[in-house]
């Protein structure tokens, strides 16, 4: 079942087309990564999805309800974080959360718990303008989590966080998804993070969806090839034996192979050793989201 369904969405600023015929389906219970280069249309899509932008063409449905007619019902079950943190700098963290909870029709009792969750319990009464960008990011995430949403829509949630913070937020989101079944729609340009966190992914480029499906499918869509680099005592002879070119760009030269399994690597090394060539280094590079992403957008 799709929790978010976008079909044939178009959006323009004046004559400049931003989104062209976007169709997207986010399965319930998934962590859905939405990736694309800067200016691809990620934030515009999220803004259309939350009703901040009014799309002239296309249908948007969340929880099976039409966004146009059931916007407030949808937003009462959704936590949103769009672009940079939206916080009142002159107010404290708990006052910012109080505002958010009141607007969601909830009591302020959950404030300490939310601040504890994002690691800001000690800073509850400090004015937000004194916060670092990472702390602001955490507080913005707490605002999105306020009211126990069933769906989280997060636009670049780990921007400005240090590596420890990124890991913490990743674990938090994974726990929310696993334990409470929260569906998470997350946009980011940090591909490594999306790869670690998401089970589904869509790639947007120049306002068009170029790929959508499971992360597994994306990574293995070219047959799950593994790139291997070999450095040997005689690269030229090794290249002749394996019938592969030597990379001229490297000062000492190395061999590049594309194999479909780990056994192929073992076979190649064995063949070289049997031919009296010493193998100094075997470096494997699995096809990851970054490689697939760059291929999709034809970088």
């Amino acid at each position: 079942m799709s929790l978010i369904s976008i079909s044939h969405l178009h959006f323009s600023y004046g004559r400049r087309k931003i989104l062209e015929d976007i169709s997207l389906s986010v399965p319930a219970g998934s962590i859905f990564g939405f990736v694309g280069p800067n200016g691809a249309g990620k934030t515009t899509t999220i803004k259309c999805l939350t009703g901040l932008l009014h799309a002239r063409e296309g249908a948007l449905a969340l929880f099976g309800m039409e966004l146009r007619s059931k916007r407030t019902d949808i937003l009462s079950r959704t936590g949103v974080m769009v672009e940079e943190p939206s916080l009142y700098g002159h107010l404290s963290a708990s006052e910012n959360l109080n505002i958010c909870l009141r607007l969601k029709g909830r009591k302020a009792a959950s404030i300490p718990g939310l601040l504890q969750t994002v690691g800001l319990a000690k800073d509850a009464h400090r004015p937000v303008r004194q916060f670092s960008s990472g702390m602001k990011q955490r507080l913005a995430l707490a605002l999105a989590l306020a009211g126990e949403p069933e769906l989280l829509i997060l636009d670049e949630p780990v921007n400005g966080l240090d590596p420890a913070g990124i890991i913490e937020i990743r674990q938090l989101l994974q726990n929310l998804n696993r334990e409470k079944g929260v569906t998470i729609f997350i946009s980011s340009h940090i591909l490594g993070e999306i790869e670690k966190l998401c089970d589904h992914v869509a790639v947007i480029h120049k306002g068009q969806i170029l790929y959508q499906g499971s992360m597994q499918q994306l990574v293995s869509r070219r047959g799950g090839n593994v790139d291997v680099r070999l450095e040997t005592s005689d690269n030229l002879r090794a290249a002749a034996i394996l019938d592969k070119p030597v990379n001229e760009g490297h000062p000492s030269g190395f061999l590049e192979l594309s194999v479909s399994s780990r056994e192929d690597i073992a076979r190649a090394v064995s063949l070289l050793v049997q031919s009296g060539i010493q193998v100094y280094e075997v470096h494997t590079e699995s096809r990851d989201l970054e490689t697939s992403f760059l291929e999709i957008i034809q970088y």
């Binding site: 803004k47 939350t50 009703g51 901040l52 407030t72 019902d73 937003l75 009462s76 959704t78 949103v80 769009v82 672009e83 940079e84 939206s86 916080l87 009142y88 700098g89 958010c100 607007l103 969601k104 029709g105 605002l143």
Partner: peptide, 18 residues
């Protein structure tokens, strides 16, 4: 200007309110 300065219009309009 409180809303403009804090960039909070977006957040405010993502709340379940008309």
């Amino acid at each position: 200007h409180l809303e403009h300065k804090s960039n909070t219009w977006k957040h405010l309009l993502c709340m379940p309110l008309n």
